[in-house]
Write a protein that binds this DNA or RNA. Sequence first.
DNA 1: GATGCCCTTAGTGTATACATAAACCGCGAT
DNA 2: ATCGCGGTTTATGTATACACTAAGGGCATC
Lengths: 213, 213
Amino acid sequence: MRASDKAYAALREDIIEWRLAPGTVLAEVEQSERLGVSRTPVREALSRLTAEGLTTAAGGRGVVVTDISLEDIDELFELRETLEGKAAALAAERGERPVFARLHAELLRAPEMLNDSDPARHDYYALVGRLDEAIDEAISNSYLAQAMRSLRVHLVRVRRLAADDAERLHAAAAEHAAIAEAIAAGNPRLAEAATTLHLHRSLSHVKATHTPH
Amino acid sequence: MRASDKAYAALREDIIEWRLAPGTVLAEVEQSERLGVSRTPVREALSRLTAEGLTTAAGGRGVVVTDISLEDIDELFELRETLEGKAAALAAERGERPVFARLHAELLRAPEMLNDSDPARHDYYALVGRLDEAIDEAISNSYLAQAMRSLRVHLVRVRRLAADDAERLHAAAAEHAAIAEAIAAGNPRLAEAATTLHLHRSLSHVKATHTPH
DNA sequence: GATGCCCTTAGTGTATACATAAACCGCGAT
DNA sequence: ATCGCGGTTTATGTATACACTAAGGGCATC
């Protein structure tokens, strides 16, 4: 593995896992010492992070970790709804139906995964990730897929704030199942509607979590 | 101006203006000699270009200029329709109406700009660019604006292929005027519809230009 | 004659030295 | 006491030397 990949992966993890808080200044020398590589790969890593929007170049004086506020979440979901709604509709038109029928069946059994033996919900998130990948592949539009991928980075950051509880995950699984079902049925408008519904519920949940009572 | 900015701007120009054809391998040493800077800023420039999608990392052996084929154009416009349609609708909801009313009036007078005294259509494209900027600002959604900006880079490349004739530009100006009018009227669905129409016509024109008779 | 291995070479990946610019601190003057 | 100027310091920006990897060609062997 290249040193620049290592630096990139490490910094990205640290930002997504909120070990590097928004506003933190990432100085090249400091990070190169912390990560045990020279400045060159660190620079490359910071370039990539800035291109992704996880960091911002702060006028000549290092890069800072991008802030994510509640207003950002609204904007983020506005774009997400647009892109994923379209993607779901396209997947319903172009996708391999058996693939989504199988995912639908698996998602219906998702509640079994949400027992307490897996606190990180690893299997559950992996399954949802497979649905995302299946949609990415089904749409056969690399530009749209790319746009969604760059969005998901920010969404993972938001998810870390949301503290999903078992109840919400059960509901989300059912919503994902509905999306998969609509795609498997080859119904674009239904797939888009199911996606819209899911995203609205997700957003409401995140905002409810962070609204003072 | 920093050397890396210079290298980035030069390479970007060369790619967009088709002086560097798709598939061209951009070797670091070669480009650093051509541009008169050292390898480091060239690397930085190539990083940025790759992040934008204008170049692709070719497995350790330099980066190559990304290809743009007719299938890519379909994908590109599919995403463009999604993003710009949503953007026009949001602008109609949130924009300052007088701004778009003024742009509407200017676009109606656009045919006057399309005389032969300005073969590059500089004023015309500047006006259309101002409409794009006004929409970007009106939507107040930095993520959506960012997604559209990264799309426009590829669209400029396509436009260079299209060889817009005066007739098409007249029609396009009228379509843009319709978009501005709908936004000025605060009608989101109309704005989206006008955008959809404009993009379909643009796409048809590009494809007609490149379809063998 | 064809195939496989080795050597050469060219190009990227990394480290580091040097240049340069901006910010901060301290000192002085008003 | 505050404002401004200048020096110092610390960061990034650039250049370059070195390492390493992969690809291509040539030679030898089957």
